[in-house]
Amino acid sequence: MLTRRIIPCLDVRAGLVTKGVRFKDNLDVGDPAELARLYGEEGADELVFYDITASNEKRDIFVDVVRRVARTLFIPFTVGGGLRTLDDLRRVLLAGAEKVSIDSGAVRNPDLITAGARAFGSQCIMLSMQVLKVPVSARIPSGYEVYIDGGRLATGKDAVAWAQEGVERGAGELCINSIDGDGTRAGYDLDLTGRIAALVPVPVIASGGGGHPDHLVRLFKETASAAAILASILHTRDWRIPDIKRRLQQHAIPVRL
């Protein structure tokens, strides 16, 4: 049986890991390769690195980070942030990433999902989406809207419909980021994640709001999510991965110990 995955998320800006609240107010928390090594040793099942550097000239610093991580980390890791073209995907995959996470680039150009899956295989295309709870309307029947550009720009796309379209286009995994939950430590959006996980045939990863081991217990008990993203509670060392996994195990949720 597949174990539920715990995935630390590292936002990287100018070569350093930072963490914000609701995509704002970022604080630097350390060296990406060093944190990756630490989380790997503690039992992270996978890692995600997002390049949140605004300027293009700093992109090379990030690819260098990816290369450095790949030399020392022997678990899968995903790379995202600002990936817009097939060449962008190829660059980080060749630097040693296992998968790519595409987000705003896929909303602007949905063919990026299709072309990426065809070129590199569905298994390495993670479609990530930033989602905000909005009033139910004819345009947004699920009441969840997709945002892009760091949660700043509304797209008018319904999150549930976009999830389905992404899978049809070849995404091998979906990562659902709740903007409402990001950095709040108030728990995952179980309704949003649960609805999408019940609908699509590919693994769904919950992100945004993970602040306590019990949040993961509820996520895995009440939804068909395959994995949970954690950031701030790990970066601050308030909780450590082995403690969280033991809590999950006590609740009969399969984990890799």
Partner: peptide, 15 residues
């Protein structure tokens, strides 16, 4: 799969 969860394909993860 176990606990009534659908088996997801591709199978991605630790076993």
């Amino acid at each position: 799969g176990p606990a009534g969860r659908p088996l997801k394909i591709p199978e991605i993860g630790w076993k």
